[in-house]
Write a protein that binds this DNA or RNA. Sequence first.
DNA 1: TCGTTGACTATTT
DNA 2: GAAATAGCCAACG
Length: 127
Amino acid sequence: MAGVFSKVYEIVCAIPKGKVLTYGLISSLLEGKLSAQGVGWALKALPSGDDLGTNDSGETVHTYSSQSVPWHRVINSKGMVSTNKRPDIQKNLQKKLLEAEGVVFDSEEKIDLNKNLWLEAGSFFTP
DNA sequence: TCGTTGACTATTT
DNA sequence: GAAATAGCCAACG
């Protein structure tokens, strides 16, 4: 199992409602364990959503999915949703989910990082 | 095993 | 300021 991936999911799951994190920030929280590109990979590797439960060995495992992981709260450094380059994902979905949590988009569909960035992430994940 | 690719970022033109 | 370049790391063929 990809431990670093689970770490990414752990962080993403801990993002409070109405807050967002950037790939680079998550990479910083991992302290070199994974690069920003690796964070993107971790989110890309998320199952569609119904892959919860057990593995082949029959043991219950924490399988993260797009339902249990708020992937929509992860954006790039420019404050824009990164689903533009992924046609298989509806970009309106991410915007809709974020707006439902109180995240404000500007006219260019960008997020105000100064207001919505999760600033407490560093202190929360630093032992 | 090697080479390519990507939901990225930071630096340089 | 926008566009190209380099560094990054895990998955896939």
